[in-house]
Simulated scan of single mutants.
Amino acid sequence: MTDPTPVFDDLRDESEELDRLVGELGEDDWALATPAAGWTVAHQIAHLAWTDRSALLAVTDLAAFAEEVEKALADPERFVDDGAEEGAGLPPAQLLAEWRAGRDALHKALCAAPRGVRFPWYGPPMSAASMATARLMETWAHGQDIADAVHVLRPPTDRLRHVARIGVRARDFAFGVQGLTPPEEEFRVELTPPSGDGDGDADSDGGGELWTYGPEDAAQRVTGPALDFCLLVTRRAHRADLAVRAQGADADRWLDIAQAFAGPPGAGRPPKGATK
């Protein structure tokens, strides 16, 4: 069985990098609007703290997590926003302390989780490694919203391999959530990692220069920088502003609808220069 420790460590590192960014903000900065409509910097951190708490319950307290699922089912349109709104009302120092404590508790719980066990979630059950991967994807994506709000350019890291892998694996889900039938054939995806010499992952061809997924001889292909692909599948940038390219009609359609997260796709981001 593959050792899940690297993704646990990468989640911790991704969170700490975002922590350094928000930890330097003034109190007024927490009220800045982010690209997510209606969400401030405080809403973004509150959402991460809320989701970390939910994940901790899923791993450590099944009965308590079941109660949270019931709340979500009672108000599926609002439960995510309500969780963010509640936390965003806290003083920034308190919100930051609660996020730190919650993610530390989750890290310890994930590391201690038995191998092979799958934990309940709002979608399909997940292993500890899958849960950590999903948390890393969300932390990076919501961190991007915050970076955009405070006009900070974050250097990308090879931790993006986790986000890219979710994006590739969620291809059929992205078609389904749009009411479309997923293509039967697999695509080839070739991404240039931020380091330029990434070591790939379980789906890699081992070449050391690209992160690769899918059959090498696939007729339909997607290529480009891993950063741009991750911005695309988390819907943090418009396709028109990214250097991700498709070969084949179905692959081209996928780039219009790709998403790495569960739930509805949302409005996404407009192209740069577009009138809102």
Rank of each mutant, 00 (worst) to 15 (best):
A97F: 06
Y122T: 09
L160A: 00
G123M: 12
A72P: 04
E67T: 15
P92C: 01
Q94K: 15
M131C: 04
R235G: 02
G38M: 10
G167L: 02
A42D: 02
G167E: 05
E184R: 13
G87L: 07
P225H: 09
A147L: 02
Q259V: 08
D82P: 05
D52C: 09
V168E: 04
F175Y: 15
L232F: 00
A132D: 06
G89R: 13
A42M: 01
G268L: 02
A64R: 14
A36Y: 08
A36G: 01
D148A: 12
E14H: 02
P124H: 12
D199L: 13
P264C: 01
D201M: 04
P125V: 09
T223E: 14
G38L: 10
L231M: 12
G266F: 11
A129V: 04
F119T: 01
E186A: 15
R118A: 14
W30P: 01
L210N: 05
W211K: 04
D82F: 00
L110S: 03
T157D: 06
A243K: 14
L11G: 08
I166R: 14
P215R: 12
T223R: 15
D201A: 01
D13H: 10
D104F: 11
R221A: 06
A101H: 02
H107S: 15
D205Y: 06
I146R: 02
A101D: 15
G116V: 01
P183H: 12
S15Y: 03
P92Y: 03
Q144Y: 05
V222W: 00
L136H: 08
E70K: 15
Q144I: 02
V7H: 03
A260D: 08
F8L: 10
D28T: 13
M137S: 12
A49L: 05
G102F: 05
F175I: 10
M126L: 15
M1D: 10
I146G: 06
R171I: 11
I45W: 06
G38K: 12
T212C: 00
E27L: 12
L11H: 11
H238G: 02
D19P: 06
R159S: 05
D29P: 08
A219Q: 13
K276W: 14
R115Y: 01
L255R: 00
F187T: 06
A74Q: 10
R12H: 13
L110M: 10
A55V: 10
A36H: 00
V80Q: 09
L73E: 15
F173I: 05
A128C: 10
L242D: 07
S15K: 00
L210D: 06
P270V: 09
D205S: 01
S127G: 15
W254K: 01
R161I: 12
K276R: 14
R118F: 11
